[in-house]
Simulated scan of single mutants.
Amino acid sequence: MRTVLVRGRRKLRLRLGNLFITRLPIFVRKTYALFGLEAAIFRKKRVKPPTEPKITGEVEAKIIALSCSEPPVGRARWALRMLADKAVELGYIESISHESVNHVPKKTN
């Protein structure tokens, strides 16, 4: 049974490979004819990201300032979840995950 499955997968891969191999030159020729050499060789660059960034520079600055401030009573330092919750509580941003707070640039001195 295993041999049959492996052969089936191999045939599928070969068919898909042949499909892409034969279609690629046609696509490149067509793109070259319509848009020129640059378009045929290089990918088009995005003008803007697919979605606007949720965390702006202003929000980043506020979160960094918050992380440099005194942590809550009973804590030695800020946790990511506490920073995210406090940023929402203070109205810096509507909602933010602790993982997004982790990507905010860190203090380097």
Rank of each mutant, 00 (worst) to 15 (best):
S100Y: 00
L80E: 02
G36W: 08
I21L: 12
L14K: 06
A84G: 02
S95V: 05
F42L: 15
L16F: 03
I93A: 01
A39T: 14
N109H: 09
Y32V: 07
V88M: 13
K30T: 15
K62Y: 02
K45L: 09
R9Y: 08
I96W: 01
L83H: 00
G8M: 05
L80R: 09
F27D: 12
Y32F: 15
G57Y: 11
L66V: 04
R43K: 12
R23M: 09
D85S: 13
G17N: 09
A65G: 10
A87F: 00
L24A: 10
V4N: 13
A39Y: 10
N18V: 08
V59A: 06
E89V: 07
A33L: 15
P25T: 06
A61M: 10
I93F: 01
I41L: 15
F42D: 14
V4E: 14
I55F: 02
K86E: 14
K106E: 04
I21F: 07
A39P: 02
A40L: 10
M82F: 06
P49G: 14
N102H: 08
E94C: 03
G57V: 09
V88P: 03
E94S: 10
G8D: 06
S67H: 05
A87T: 04
V73W: 06
R77L: 05
N109R: 10
